[in-house]
């Protein structure tokens, strides 16, 4: 009984904290992760899908990913005032993979590992001074990572 009560209390605490900070729960842009194209996803997160290709946005990803379940990706930029970085995989069931909102003092240099269902273009978007800059790269996938 003791243990059960403890668990209940813990669950209650988590729910209470979720209610106390609804911003954290609600802020996740669910719709952006549901839409099926890069333009819709960009529209959802940034309110525009206008991209300028820029060499100042650097995307590091493998040419060939042997395992689509774990594809290392790094997006960086020397641009000033970078507010946000987004990673989009065009041919995934939901293209938007991740966004990183950066605070003041942040340096635009984020890395993560993503899943890719099949060979696709990977798009890196950097928002700086309210504008969207991008660069893209095709990554060939030999084994898909969406559990097919």
């Amino acid at each position: 009984m003791q243990i059960l009560r403890r668990n209940l209390l813990k669950a209650g605490l988590i729910i209470a904290s979720a209610m106390a900070f609804p911003r954290l729960v609600l802020a996740w842009p669910a719709q952006a992760f549901k839409v099926k194209s890069r333009n819709e996803a960009l529209q959802e997160i940034y309110g525009t899908s206008e991209l300028s290709q820029s060499e100042d946005v650097k995307l590091k990803a493998p040419d060939i990913a042997e395992n689509g379940a774990v594809v290392p990706v790094t997006v960086s930029s020397d641009m000033a005032n970078v507010e946000s970085i987004a990673i989009i995989v065009d041919d995934n069931p939901s293209p938007l993979t991740a966004t990183f909102e950066l605070g003041a003092g942040a340096i635009a240099d984020v890395s993560t590992r993503i899943k890719m269902g099949k060979t696709s273009t990977v798009l890196a978007v950097v928002k700086a001074d309210g504008k969207l800059y991008s660069t893209e790269k095709e990554v060939k996938v030999t084994i898909g990572g969406c559990g097919g």
């Binding site: 990183f100 942040a106 240099d109 984020v110 890395s111 899943k115």
Partner: peptide, 25 residues
């Protein structure tokens, strides 16, 4: 105590996620 990075992730981030980022100050 100050938020320096906030990430929104979809299901396409790999299992046992890894990430890195940099900031000044």
């Amino acid at each position: 105590g100050k938020v320096v990075m906030k990430a929104n992730w979809g299901p396409a981030v790999s299992k046992n996620p890894y990430f890195s980022f940099k900031f000044r100050g």
